[in-house]
Design a protein around this nucleic acid. Structure first.
Lengths: 341, 341
DNA sequence: GTCAACTGAAAAAACCTTTTCTCAAAAAAT
DNA sequence: ATTTTTTGAGAAAAGGTTTTTTCAGTTGAC
């Protein structure tokens, strides 16, 4: 048995509507778009007939004329990571209400592939492009300057004079430390990722300005192993031990919690641990579940979507970097029940 | 300062090419498409001119005429999970070579939203649709029958007489158990997810037919906590203890490994543990790193992409369920170094 | 030297909408 | 009763491309 390709049924066009309603094509068009002048009766009849026979306008033909395709492209090099996913969901969610569809372009880290995708999108007359990535301080390996359509950057480094959306990591770090302090913790240590990351430096600076300039920052890598090692390192030394750890991501936090438990140190009774990212799968499965900082990436995606739409419609948008606030997610690894308001 | 929307530069059309090359529009078109009859010199000249002035054909106009938009839609309700991501990457990768772009439609589990997305895609004249999900035995909450375009299902339950791609979980389970046996393990227990999942039953059946019909299967939930509890349960009982655990996913495996270590049981020396999913972030960060089964989801996406393309082009495709083989990923949690060939 | 066949290239139609222009009929104003 | 305004709706153009048709000029055969 062969599969029906389904391509046989021919689509109904505005011609069919016009014929069925007994009017001209132009009248049909005007009736459906609520433009032009005509009798109420005629307009209603056309609309009714159109919906009866299931007419849906061909977006290609419409786009050809209006020079708007109601389509935008989302370029990302983060195919497996956890960052682009919520961003994509936010973009898609924000734009579907406006009848705009999103082209997904996974370019890995291949400049040639990126180029191919950008050209394909341009050929398809996208109204705009959102560039997204897995790291705030790295550019996508594609040249997006001098494109005939607007470009917005989300969670990746943008070109000068462009619009860029990113999380406010300093705000997130401040939230974290203030929460620890409100739990009565005074000897907080920041265990984080590689110094090369801009967000590591940014969070560390915010951490110091809230926890005190002499507060300690340990840089390592983004892994559980490092969280584990950092605890070993801290507890092997002489002198007073920390009473709280602010970790650079949830994986480090998880490693730290495990290491503390292995040492017989109770979390959160003896030491509070707070993570970053709110990666459900890590944060919620840690025992105890991690209190952490959420970067609100879906909201970030939503705003990026609305912004590229505004630009596409010619509405003015101020260029610059927009930092979106983070949100504290309280679980059990710090004690306490809800964020102070 | 206001941001340049970039919309000003007007696109160059085939008219410009024709004018610049001193030929008619039709000749320009034929030259560029290698169709029609004309002198080699003319053809070359047109091509050269076109590339010089940077001509790119408008896909909207082309699609309007050819009734092919070189666009397909990817519908998924798995916005955060780990399954759709590799599938999407595979689809995108397979189709970009054919000049086909992919619309990403995240529909959560909202039927209304799904309907909106499907209609938007149809309006945009997609050549086909790929439906993807997070569970093999659940349908997407959208009616995709009687669509004017072909539909292919990937990692979600398909309609009767459709083309569906899924992983061969029985094969994966067989690979896992045979590997454990090749390590000399004879008392394997299968710790897995809820019985309601089709793949749980399928893997359990395969497990029993390789490990012996009396081999034990423990069903729980898909969490680390369950893996932990299952080990407690098994080791608290009297009698002979298992010498290997085949876990239903990497998270369960991780919980099991942690529980074993807490009991002073060495992995893999005393007990081998194998996971399922090859979720890098869990499998690679477990200590020891997990040997696990990869469902080859990217390949699955690639094949789904090529299949929907074939259907769109009217090439015949046999309907039915295609099960794709899994792949064993050897790390350290079972001992051994490489899969036997 | 006439006619057929072939060659190269242009003209026109088609795809589906939207928008501007035109025009006849009806209503209002003189 | 005649002119002006308003109303309703059709005709045509535009958007960028591909495809079919047409046509003039050349070549080859008889």
């Amino acid at each position: 048995m062969r599969l029906d390709t389904g391509g046989a049924k021919k689509r109904i066009t505005i011609h069919d509507v016009a014929a069925a309603a007994g009017v001209s094509i132009s009248t049909a068009s005007k009736a459906l778009n609520n433009t032009g002048r005509m009798g109420d009766e005629t307009r209603e009849r056309v609309k009714r007939v159109a919906s009866e026979i299931g007419f849906r306008p061909n977006a290609l033909a419409r786009g050809l004329l209006s020079k708007r395709s109601f389509t935008i492209g989302l370029l990302t090099n983060d195919t497996y990571g956890r960052f682009t996913l919520p961003v994509m969901a936010g973009v898609s969610e924000a734009l579907v209400d406006h009848g705009v569809s999103v082209f997904l372009c996974a370019i890995e880290d291949d400049p040639a592939l990126g180029q191919v995708h950008v050209e394909a999108m341009l050929d398809k007359q996208v109204d705009g492009i959102i560039a997204s990535g897995k790291r705030l301080d790295r550019r996508l390996p594609v040249d997006l300057s001098n494109l005939p359509v607007p470009v917005v950057y989300a969670f990746t480094e943008g070109a000068p004079d462009s619009v860029t959306f990113r999380s406010d990591d300093a705000h997130g770090a401040t939230l974290a430390v203030e929460w620890l302090q409100s739990m009565g913790r005074r000897r907080v240590v920041h265990v984080t990722g590689p110094k090369e990351f801009f967000s590591v430096r940014e969070r560390a600076d915010a951490f110091r300005s809230v926890a005190g300039e002499s507060a300690e920052v340990l840089c390592g890598i983004w892994s559980e192993g490092w969280g584990h090692d950092a605890v070993d390192q801290l507890w092997k030394r002489d002198g007073e031990k920390p009473d709280a750890l602010f970790c650079g991501n949830d994986q480090i936090a998880r490693g730290a919690v495990d290491a503390l438990r292995e040492r017989g140190i109770r979390v959160p009774e003896d030491v509070s641990v707070i993570g970053f990212d709110n990666w459900e799968i890590v944060a919620a499965q840690t025992r105890p579940p991690l209190t952490t900082v959420d970067m609100e990436l879906k909201e970030l995606g939503r705003q990026a979507g609305l912004t590229v739409l505004a630009l596409a419609e010619g509405r003015p948008v101020e260029p610059g970097v927009r930092k979106l606030p983070c949100r504290l997610v309280v679980r059990q690894s710090c004690g306490g029940n809800s964020p102070k308001l």
